[in-house]
Design a protein around this nucleic acid. Structure first.
Lengths: 132, 132
DNA sequence: TTAAACTATATAGTAACTATAGAGTCAAGT
DNA sequence: ACTTGACTCTATAGTTACTATATAGTTTAA
């Protein structure tokens, strides 16, 4: 299988597959006579894992760690848990921040009446004055 | 006032102030004999506005638009409203996405028991199999 | 055989900075 | 007068996870 077929099978772009190889998330593939990368079924598996992790917003560094752990089946999976746990925390924190942001934006939005001019725009006034 | 003082007064770093100037969020400042940027009180105002907007996660492009609008006090502030509204929507969407993510991460986390080895780790299994 | 479709590498761009290198400026102390 | 240290200047590279582009080579179908 060549890279284009792998791309359509997994929903990745050709470029990102090459990028993952460069970043060591996929192994260096063997090449055909014409220097084309040749993939087997294992590559589909691995790319799907990568893609699923990316959908969960895991960083490439985190995914690389998971993949390395997968190569050592006999150690305990504490590290896997830790990665997921810390990621859950990060997401929770981000949600909290965004909710706070949402409140501020709404209160900002309420400070501008419909027909006013920029000159007396409550939003711009608030932005200029409010402390950081 | 030189750039370092402005930085401490506003809580920005010296580099980011220079960056904002390069990106046209601050005007090109006049220079001293020794080629140092010289700032007045207006710069504090403007930097605080920028910083406050950044705290609200507005992009530099959005902030640039707001600052341009500020220069034209007589037009209606529809555009200001639109920027804020669209930003509120973006944040709401992101919160929704993150909540969905959070669910998936938690269900993933639940699939790994405490003492298992990587070999039989429910998390890695799920990640490999689950569809994108 | 030739054109289309595919693949290869290398490089630059994205956002909003941060970090670094190398050089010039200024104020205070000796 | 000289030097030291703190400050400033510009230019460049790095960050993340790609995407886009240019240029060149390969394969496949008509």
């Amino acid at each position: 299988m060549k890279i284009g077929e792998l791309a359509t099978l997994t929903g990745c772009t050709v470029q990102s597959i090459r990028y993952y190889e460069k970043e060591q998330l996929l192994p260096t593939m063997q090449r055909s006579d014409g220097n084309y990368r040749i993939y087997g079924l294992a590559a589909i598996e691995q790319l799907k894992l990568i893609k699923h992790c990316r959908n969960l917003d895991l960083s490439l560094a985190e995914i690389r760690t998971l993949l390395e752990l997968k190569q050592q089946p006999d150690i305990t999976c504490d590290t896997v848990n830790k990665i997921v746990d810390s990621h859950i925390e990060q997401v929770a924190l981000r949600i909290k921040e965004l909710k706070h942001l949402q409140e501020q934006l709404r209160s900002l939005r309420d400070s501008c009446s419909l027909k006013s001019t920029v000159n007396e725009c409550g939003i711009l006034k608030k932005l200029s004055v409010k402390k950081t």
